[in-house]
Design a binder for these strands. Structure first.
Length: 579
RNA sequence: GGUCCCGUGGUGUAGCCUGGCCAAACACGCGGCCCUGUCAAGGCCGAGAACGCCGGUUCGAAUCCGGUCGGGACCGCCA
């Protein structure tokens, strides 16, 4: 059999007229006219019509795997099919051999409608046979190739870092692997090769990259899987502009070469605080306007109890004008309230037409309209809560409104940098903590007021965002030991904790560390955007469900007692952990 | 941990709000027959689900209620 070098079903064209071919593929469709049978034969490259007028007609069924020997010819005039890429030709079979048969598949391979997610994942190997999924696998492969070409052209070196490693300084829960040779000790799977890539800078690699698998044991989302892939990169002697320039050029190349799109450069930059204020998120979708306004000033001494209470407690009131929103039904508004509650908010208020009308003074209503830019036909939606919560709620409502009212300009690519960001943030207990990781380099000049206003200290950190997705984040790193010490001290990290967690890096930095920085764009999300899907499972060959199961292989699974014994592990859990 | 949506033959949907007309409809697929130019082929015939599971309400439940399992979206969490 020499099917490997055989022509592809999907590649035959009019120029192949007269060519004798041997084709290998799957029966995608069969049209039996009695005396003549048409078979659409599918391989990875597409489908071609095969004409069978044989004395001994084999029993062909959908998804049978066959070998066909025959001749390519132009279709008889009038029978061309413009819907098929190979529609100008057909293959007249002289011989057909069934290589393997197929049971009727659990769902149609050739169908516009997608089967249920659960069924797709149980039979992922068949799901991937669907042409739409095959395209995604190809796209992902292409993206990886473009990235490698781009990085290699710029003399970056791809270094593979270990999967069995040690807990890293980012904040997510680790996946642990027990060590057989070291009882009671565990490896951690990397959340990101953060410390290793910085160590590679000390090694003098200068320009490192890796298409790196990363693992985080946190809850899933439509754009989040427990294992995912990043283009991890780090460079020495760079400033922020170097990183921005490199990444913008990379994205331009990706968009151009993968889907033929031209994206605008340079990408605009947005202060993270402004992003939260105007869009209620740190990954705003700029394909629609809908800007959020702070209404606190307009409600300084309002009689409306809801707002007064929130403001007195240090919370905020944020509003959003919905263009033409006065036509919204009570039902639609109720659904928005449900969205707000689902996000943990108290609810949602609106003017005019809401319960608040009679509690707000008319000059307050005027001020609200003014601040949100609401016109006579517009409705203002309002969220009042602790700052973070109110922002989340009104940000989600902003998205929801854009979706429902079709305000999103499809086809646009609105890239931006979230930059600058800030070094510190407050944790749940009101304690100071790092916003990124403790090696993020602060703005030198801001450190003069760090004692008085720590949360205003800017950091050389940046996220790249496109159309509402965070595509990656990074920073310049601290290389000055005194600065590093200062940051640790501000974070209130005890010396022994620092030594335990970051000792290797800090010691390495005593042997001549170059100033350095980097970023890690997420490849899954890049492929999602390029592939036009909003679900990360569509760009991962074998993904997990929301509850982190592999429905095809049945993972996770119990293991033999002998395996546990060897590892010195006793399974004692009786119920699911709190998540 | 929380909010919300979904679960009907192999597949995709309808029915569920407003219980009985539903041992459940339609399309594709599947089995059989017819047809030499179709391409989502067509025509005729046929098989196939007691409606995720458990319990409750009711004279009566796919339809209402509670629980549970599974899938999904989101908040928390996670850069």
């Amino acid at each position: 059999m020499s099917g490997y070098s055989a022509p592809h079903c999907g590649s035959l064209r009019a120029s192949d007229d007269g060519r004798e071919v041997e084709l290998y593929g799957w029966v995608a469709r069969r049209r039996d006219m009695g005396g003549v049978v048409f078979v659409d034969l599918r391989d990875r490259w597409g489908k071609v019509q095969v004409v069978l007028k044989l004395a001994a007609m084999p029993e062909l069924r959908l998804e049978y795997v066959v070998r066909v020997r025959g001749t390519v010819r132009r279709r008889p005039a009038g029978s061309e099919n413009p819907k098929m890429e190979t529609g100008e030709v057909e293959v007249v079979a002289e011989e057909i051999e069934i290589l393997t048969r197929s049971e009727p598949p659990p769902f149609p391979i050739e169908d516009a409608e997608e089967p249920d997610e659960k069924t797709r994942l149980e039979y992922r190997y068949l799901d991937l046979r669907r042409p739409a999924m095959t395209r995604m696998l190809e796209l992902r492969s292409k993206v990886n190739r473009i990235i490698r070409d781009f990085m290699e052209e710029r003399e970056f070196v791809e270094v593979e870092t270990p999967i069995l490693t040690r807990s890293s300084p980012s904040g997510a829960r680790d996946f642990l692997v027990p060590s057989r040779l070291h009882p009671n000790e565990f490896y951690a799977l990397p959340q990101a090769p953060q410390m290793l890539k910085q160590l590679l800078m000390v090694s003098g690699v200068q320009r490192y990259y890796q298409i790196a698998r990363c693992f985080r044991d946190e809850n899933l989302r439509a754009d989040r899987q427990p294992e995912f892939t990043q283009l991890d990169l780090e460079m020495s002697f760079c400033d922020e502009e170097d990183v921005f320039g490199l990444v913008e050029a990379l994205f331009a190349r990706l968009w151009k070469d993968a889907i033929g799109a031209t994206i605008e450069m340079p990408f605009p930059r947005l202060d993270i605080k402004e992003s939260f204020l105007r869009y209620g998120t740190d990954k705003p979708d700029l394909r629609y306007e809908l800007e959020i306004a702070d209404l606190g000033d307009a409600l300084g001494d309002t009689r409306a109890e809801v707002f007064r209470r929130v403001l007195a407690a240090g919370g905020v009131v944020r509003g959003l004008a919905v263009p033409g929103g006065r036509d919204m039904s009570r039902r639609e508004l109720d659904e928005l309230v449900t969205v707000a509650r689902g996000a943990g908010g108290q609810g949602l208020a609106w003017v005019p037409g809401g319960a608040l009308d009679k509690h707000l003074a008319s000059d307050e209503i005027d001020a609200i309209k003014h601040l949100t830019g609401a016109g006579p036909d517009d409705l203002v939606l309002i969220a009042a809560d602790r700052r973070r919560k109110a922002e989340t709620v009104i940000g989600l409502i902003r998205q929801e409104i854009a979706r429902r009212r079709k305000l999103i300009r499809e086809g646009e690519w609105r890239f931006l940098w979230i930059n600058p960001t800030y070094l510190f943030e407050e944790d749940d207990q009101g304690h100071i903590t790092y916003a990124h990781h403790p090696f993020t380099r602060p703005f030198e000049e801001d450190m003069s007021f760090v004692e008085e206003r720590p949360y205003d200290v800017r950091a050389h950190a940046y996220d790249i965002v496109c159309n509402g997705y965070e595509l990656g984040g990074g920073s310049l790193r601290i290389y000055d030991p005194r600065m590093q010490e200062r940051v640790f001290q501000l974070l209130g990290m005890p010396l022994d904790v620092i030594r335990e967690r970051f000792g290797t890096l800090l010691e390495a930095f005593t042997y001549g560390v170059p100033p350095h920085g980097g970023i890690a764009p997420g490849i899954d999300r890049i492929v999602m955007m390029l592939g036009g899907t909003d679900n990360i499972r569509d760009v991962i060959a074998f993904p997990k469900t929301q509850s982190m199961s592999d429905l095809m292989l049945g993972a996770p699974s119990e293991v033999d007692q002998a395996q546990l014994d060897e590892l010195g592990i006793k399974a004692v859990a009786t119920k699911k952990p709190a998540s």
